Computed example of a mutant assay.
Amino acid sequence: MKKFLMSLSLLLAAGVALAANPQVEINTSKGAIVVELYPDAAPISVANFLDYVKDKHYNGTIFHRVIQGFVIQGGGLDTNKTELPTKAPIKNEAEKAFKAGLKNDRGSLAMARTGVPDSATSQFYINLKNNDALNYPSRDGYGYAVFGKVVKGMDVVDKIAAAPTDSGDAPVDPIVIKDAHVLAGKAGK
């Protein structure tokens, strides 16, 4: 019986490890940020983000929008502030994510979009405070889809947020995403 329980414990531990949420390390010119993604709550957004990570799309992009006390946004412009080509926009999952408990709270990772609800492509943002106005249903009836959160490196996020910016909210000295990659053993389901 003891061997059976030990084997069962090992299998359960292995199952938990296999079901872990994916984590991505975003290495910036200010330091590393690790985000955990939630595919159960926002499967389309997570798959989209991971596709861009695997395609190395984020490597060499900048945080082009930094608003102290609000968000830092990146993932779509190169160091010349030229918008990069993207894949087709994805469906807005803000309602599904919100109902699963994901909110635009400090440290959460969400899809940036235009005024069109289903317009998110590669750009993402990290909330610097609890931004309830961005949650489903928001003013437009949709909101902004949260699909992850910072689990390490919030101090780096705060350094980025403190950077001096120009009149267009871009850091005066570009803050570059050197690379983004899925952490080994944290690839998720």
Rank of each mutant, 00 (worst) to 15 (best):
M1P: 12
K2M: 07
K2E: 14
F4N: 14
M6E: 12
S7P: 01
L11Y: 12
L12T: 14
A13G: 12
G15D: 00
G15R: 01
G15W: 08
G15C: 08
V16W: 11
V16Q: 03
A17P: 07
A17V: 15
L18Y: 14
L18E: 12
A19Q: 08
A20L: 14
N21Q: 10
N21E: 15
N21H: 11
P22G: 09
V24E: 12
V24I: 15
V24Y: 01
E25N: 12
I26T: 08
N27H: 14
N27M: 12
T28C: 02
T28M: 02
K30N: 04
K30G: 06
K30S: 06
A32Q: 10
A32E: 11
I33G: 05
I33R: 12
I33P: 07
V35R: 09
L37Q: 07
D40H: 08
A41K: 10
A41Q: 13
A42I: 11
A42Q: 09
A42V: 10
I44P: 02
S45N: 11
V46N: 09
V46F: 09
A47T: 13
L50T: 11
L50R: 06
D51E: 14
K54I: 05
Y58R: 04
Y58N: 05
N59Q: 04
G60M: 07
G60E: 07
H64C: 00
H64L: 00
R65C: 01
R65S: 01
R65G: 00
R65Y: 05
I67N: 06
I67Y: 06
F70C: 07
V71S: 02
Q73G: 09
Q73W: 12
G74D: 00
G75N: 04
G76R: 01
G76M: 00
T79G: 01
T79P: 00
T79E: 12
N80I: 08
K81S: 14
E83R: 13
E83I: 05
L84K: 14
P85G: 07
P85I: 07
P85D: 12
T86C: 01
K87F: 04
K87V: 00
K87W: 07
K87T: 03
A88V: 09
P89M: 05
I90Q: 12
I90D: 13
N92S: 09
E95L: 09
K96H: 10
K99I: 04
K99D: 09
A100P: 00
A100Y: 00
G101V: 02
L102S: 05
L102G: 03
N104E: 03
N104S: 02
D105E: 14
D105C: 06
G107W: 02
G107M: 05
S108Q: 11
L109P: 04
L109D: 10
A110V: 06
A110W: 03
A112D: 05
A112I: 01
R113G: 01
V116H: 13
P117M: 08
P117A: 10
D118E: 12
S119H: 03
A120G: 02
A120T: 00
Q123P: 02
F124H: 13
F124C: 10
Y125Q: 05
L128S: 11
L128I: 09
L128Q: 14
